[in-house]
């Protein structure tokens, strides 16, 4: 009898250990954020223009502003967000374990990440792509003219593979010079040890400022890879993913319709779609599980996409490129607010 009791209690103990692991929590992160009164957003610990700690101890940058936009939409206050700096390796774990609610950390949307990692992507907030930087004096305008050039690239990165693929498909002979470290790559380029340097365009542009004579160098107007960067949510939480996606669309929409941080408070319009956007009709917020004036809150807090871009990325010298509304020939396309 005693043995039996022991076995039963051991079983109960084992079950009690396992149950919390199995217990599926159906509560959406959207509700958790509302209950908590605070959004937890994973960002880059120090990437020029995208995420860094400002002098006043507040997080700044393009990615951080999208975190604020989500907090403004969900909680009505852009300051109710806590930023967690993450490195490249731990960013997905942090999202999967629920340490952060949303990951906005320069993450490229790829098929394997979408399918294999338990993450869902939302519309990209920034379309980056691999490019080339070279001295103006070489007077090179196209990729074909790079034949025979020595091209600096960082080791083990997708940039290295993209470079090899592109050059092979174009049948161009070139001399790859591989560096283990980004800083060495650019200092070697500056010292003239390699003719050309290749990387994501946002990085090239940001790094050009640190060269001895930035004006003597140009970023070539070709892009050889696609790097769509955007926020990520955990896989399967559709309610939360919808909310984050529409926060991104709201910033696109506002730029399309010239709704800015300045005019959003006083805006009077007869346009039914803008009325729905501002929460004056249509109950768009309710459908997403957000307050009626969610989109208005976003624009009041951080402005439209163009304003976010100009505040964070224009100062580091990034051109808008394809990151402008589709109405101006860009890739930013907000789905209809209907």
């Amino acid at each position: 009898m005693r043995k039996f009791l022991f076995r039963i209690s051991a079983l109960v103990f084992a079950i009690s250990l396992v149950t919390p692991l199995l217990a599926d929590n159906h509560q959406s992160i959207l509700d958790k954020v509302k209950n908590r009164g605070k959004l937890v957003c994973g960002v880059h610990g120090g990437l020029p223009g995208f995420g860094f700690l400002g002098e006043d101890g507040k997080w700044s940058g393009f990615d951080a502003d999208f975190g604020r936009a989500i907090a403004a939409a969900v909680l009505g206050d852009p300051d109710k967000v806590e930023f967690v700096p993450l490195n490249a390796a731990e960013r997905f774990t942090a999202l999967q374990t629920g340490e952060i609610d949303v990951l906005i950390r320069n993450t490229t949307w790829t098929l394997s990440r979408d399918a294999e990692l338990s993450t869902d992507f939302t519309p990209p907030t920034f379309y980056d792509g691999q490019g080339f930087m070279l001295p103006k004096s070489l007077n090179i305008k196209s990729i074909k003219e790079l034949a025979g050039a020595s091209i600096g690239v960082t080791a083990g990165s997708t940039t290295e593979l993209n470079l090899a693929d592109t050059m092979r498909s174009l049948g161009i002979e070139f001399k790859p010079v591989v560096y283990a470290d980004i800083d060495t790559l650019y200092s070697s380029y500056d010292a003239g040890r390699v003719d050309v340097v290749t990387s994501d365009k946002s990085q090239l542009v940001a790094r050009r400022k640190d060269l001895k004579n930035p004006d003597d160098h140009v970023v070539l107007d070709v892009t050889i890879s696609k790097e769509p960067l955007g926020p990520l949510t955990i896989h399967g939480d559709n309610k939360w993913n919808d909310a984050v996606s529409w926060v991104v669309y709201a910033t696109f929409f506002a730029e399309e319709h010239n709704i800015t941080q300045e005019n959003v408070k006083t805006l009077k319009t007869d346009n039914p779609e803008i009325k729905r956007f501002l929460g004056e009709s249509g109950e768009m917020g309710e459908k997403l599980g957000l307050p009626a004036d969610w989109a208005k809150q976003i624009i009041m807090a951080v402005g439209n996409y163009g304003e976010i871009f100009e505040r964070n990325l224009t100062p580091i010298g990034l051109p808008r490129g394809v990151n402008k509304p589709w109405t101006q020939g860009g890739l930013l396309y907000a789905m209809p607010f209907r």
């Binding site: 880059h44 610990g45 120090g46 020029p48 223009g49 995420g51 860094f52 940001a206």
Partner: peptide, 16 residues
């Protein structure tokens, strides 16, 4: 990903 003295140093260098 913790911002100790060195981590803050890196973050400062991320400031344009």
């Amino acid at each position: 990903g913790l911002l100790d003295l060195l981590g803050i140093g890196r973050s400062i260098l991320g400031n344009p």
